[in-house]
Amino acid sequence: MDGGQPVSFVTAENIFQSYGARPILERVNVTVDEGEFISIVGASGCGKSTFLRLLLAQERPTRGEIRIAGAPPAVEPGLDRGVVFQKYSVFPHMTVRENIVAGESFRTTWGVFSGAHKKAARDRADDTLARIGLDHVADQYPATLSGGMQQRLAIGQALAAKPRILLLDEPFGALDPGTRLSMHDFLTELRAETRMTVFMVTHDLEEGFKLGDRVLVFDKPRWDPTDPNAYGATITYDFDARDGGIPFQRIEEDTHVLRPA
């Protein structure tokens, strides 16, 4: 997007979300450019997954609007938003290849391809599988795969549908550190290829800064000591993580300084 003004692609405007009388999110405002990778961090239970569900249009906010590419706010999840959860993101009753094909075939009337379409979709699925390193298990069921392979499959499946934004809710939360690192490389590669807009919730600050262009921190700006549930969370920091996550490194240095010798 050299030359022209970067157009904001995703806008969340004055989002409030409450469950019953309990506010979870309040006054969340953020604009994101196309192709940006947004990491979301924050304490447990502060509403990160809630924000992702709002982006996904799985829920609608109590107040405010989320728009993608200027379109009217979505009322339900659809093809423009892909998602990978920590668990249950692939279909256990389909083989690995069928899972990838589902990324294209589910939008048809009966959810399956036939004839020449079927062959072509299988070939494309095999290409995808080769790219995500799962071609050797194409005919196995997901339950036989390791956690890392299942998440790779889930990401591959989401990308097969060619969404405009990809939402990841702690996608690597259940993986061991080694697998996690190789998943980072995998995701970075895929991103370089697709230039997709990504929102990723993580509990790993390092991961958030490493992968993200920006890191959003969710926290409660106001705190009622007698009633911790009185206020909702909002975005309290919006770090630029683009050049190797310098703010993050500064935080590390600070802690080194503070640590007694």
Binding site: L56, G78, L79, Y88, F106, R107, Q157, A158, A161, P163
Partner: peptide, 8 residues
């Protein structure tokens, strides 16, 4: 939800 995002 995953199926919904695949356009099902």
């Amino acid at each position: 939800v995953k199926a919904e995002t695949l356009g099902a």
